[in-house]
Write a protein that binds this DNA or RNA. Structure first.
Length: 312
DNA sequence: CGCGTTTGACCTGCGC
DNA sequence: GCGCAGGTCAAACGCG
């Protein structure tokens, strides 16, 4: 296994591990493997608030963090050197940065939690290679240059740039090593908003678009309704945007169900889907239990983890 | 004319 | 220290 801990995103995307990454860890646990306690918190916060106050949240269904530290833990099929259960991460402060559905298996989204995780990782690092220690040390030293938490979504789509309710300005494009597909860099066009996103295609599956969000939108509302957009579409679009999710509102590029409809992108897609059929019936793959068919009755079920739905 | 895209150059971090 | 790769900048360009 030369896939060492310093694995880079493109390594993940560009190899067969992508499927594994996707099926076993990436979306599912990010989205559905939520601790009940966390769910309760989310509910107590008011789910609709989470949907409506998109500037306060950007719940990551996958947080990529720094590629060196986070991704390996996320993609490792074996029990990763996981930090202790993220009870600290689920701190009540999540109110300020609420809707961090991924509390247990996946790193949290909020920057505060991010810091926490870095610390935890640092402790883990002490038991690992010197090389990695150095890397971690460097990472910690660069805290002043700390990057925003990143959230990645894998979306099955023919178009690279997915509509997510915000307006983006492309500021760069780079060829990605080991991938025939370039990576595009976008920035939110809102002046005070420094949210960025990267869009690239998966090397192993060109039909999959990987969108990585970095930062949180500082403005309260996404783009204004466009003439061609229906109001209902927009509302759902905003809901999806509230989660920082890519979403497609244009049917021609409508996303295909992604690997058993289990990707975060599909998750977001369902939220903002213009196709109501997706809202009423979809397959949700639940880790460890195998694919299952859930009946959806509405938006909530698109958002809530499956086991919560069962509980209700 | 304003806004967004393109694209080569440049900067930075990291591994060797 | 050097080279590579990722990320960003900014001028040029295109489009409505």
């Amino acid at each position: 296994m030369e896939r060492k801990e310093g694995m880079k995103m493109e390594d993940v995307l560009g190899n067969s591990s992508c499927s594994q990454f996707t099926v076993n860890n990436f979306p599912l646990q990010s989205i559905f493997d939520l601790s009940c306690s966390e769910d309760e918190k989310i509910l107590s916060l008011g789910l609709m608030d989470l949907l409506g106050v998109q500037d306060l949240i950007s719940p990551p269904f996958l947080e990529i963090m720094t590629a060196e530290q986070q991704v390996p833990s996320l993609i490792s099929s074996q029990a990763p050197p996981t930090p202790p259960p993220s009870k600290k991460i689920e701190s009540p402060e999540a109110i300020n940065q609420p809707a961090t559905p991924n509390s247990s298996s996946i790193s949290p989204a909020p920057s505060e939690a991010f810091n926490e995780l870095v610390k935890v990782d640092d402790q883990e690092e002490n038991q690992k290679k010197t090389k990695k220690q150095l890397k971690t040390k460097k990472t910690n030293q660069n805290q002043k240059r700390q990057r925003e938490p990143r959230f990645a979504f894998m979306t099955k789509s023919e178009v690279d740039h997915l509509e997510d309710g915000y307006r983006w300005r492309k500021y760069g494009q780079k060829a990605v090593k080991n991938s025939p597909f370039p990576r595009s860099y976008y920035r939110c066009t809102t002046a005070s908003c420094n949210v960025k996103k990267r869009v690239e295609r998966s090397f192993s599956d060109p039909s999959i678009v990987v969108t990585t969000y970095e930062g949180q939108h500082t403005h309260s509302s996404p783009i204004m309704p466009r003439p061609k957009l229906g109001g209902s579409h927009l509302s759902t679009a905003m809901s999806a945007a509230a989660f920082g999710m890519p979403m497609q509102r244009t049917s021609p590029h409508y996303q295909q169900p992604f690997t058993n409809s289990l990707s975060p992108s599909n998750f977001g897609h369902n939220i903002g889907s213009t196709n109501n059929s997706f809202l009423h019936e979809k397959r949700i793959y639940i880790p460890g239990t195998g694919p299952s068919l859930l009946k959806d009755h509405g938006l909530l079920q698109d958002i809530l983890p499956s086991h919560m739905l069962k509980e209700e």
